[in-house]
Amino acid sequence: MELFIQQLTNGLAIGSIYALIALGYTMVYGVMKLINFAHGDLFSIGAYLGLTFLISFGLVDKVGAPVAILIIMLMVMGLVGLIGILLERVAYRPLRKADRLAAVVSALGASIFFSNSLMLIYGAKFRVYPHNLLPKSYITILELHIPVVRILLLLVSFILMACLYLFVQKTKTGTAIRAAAIDQGAARLMGINVNKIISIVFFIGPALGGAAGIMVGLYYGQVNFLMGWLYGLKAFIAAVIGGIGNIPGAMLGGLILGVIESLGAAYISFAWKDAIAFFVLIVILIVRPTGILGERVAEKV
């Protein structure tokens, strides 16, 4: 039971990070029908920028760890978001009318570019995050010790996701995003500036990915220039499991994947941990070809 609860909470924590990254995939896909293969690297950039800010400004000493982390997280989110906008302008916008696979290759090129930029700047080795910033304490519920960090991680993810959800559901811009996702042409006819919507989506998605980057750095204490691939892939799987293009689906998919992976690693096989995600994916897609919350699109004849 102890193991189960530990793995479950750990899985929820990791899953919430997957969900944050998955939101970037799913929002971009929703509006542009494009898989942004460079998204995982934007997450890595977030992790490295977070590291740089944490160790260089001495902010932690001035305002204390919690406030410093909050400020730095917002800075990172803004910066990674701007990189996202830039990425769309340079690598995707010229290909909007081209074959979809051309954009996939462009995205892969951008991914290689980003990960190698990180390697040139920060080196190929693992970099260690400052490790004295987060509370080491545990919360004890019914004799179970759950690390506070895990709960904080979940809390922050949920706050970010709730903000996004409210933004998309309740604001005018959010409505415009949803409209553009359903039919870009019609949205344009209704006077929605689709280019602006795409830029906003390419800001929000990467910003959330950047936040996830810092959170992973703080949680695991180290970052590597290639980690974006694996996290990106897992988050992409999460988005697909939930139904790509569907925002609640990405959140759900992330949490499901995190929990299954964590439990699978503990109860089935640690060596097969990374394969479990794919097994889950394949089984879900065979049963539901467009994911759990994805719409079933029957082609009109």
């Binding site: 340079v90 290909l95 081209a98 051309a102 892969l108 090129g109 290689i112 190698n116 930029s117």
Partner: peptide, 17 residues
């Protein structure tokens, strides 16, 4: 590899087909 990645993007933009 950095140049390679950038070249991929550029080639796709100029020859999407």
């Amino acid at each position: 590899m950095l140049i390679f990645g950038a070249a991929m993007v550029v080639m796709m933009i100029f020859r999407p087909q």
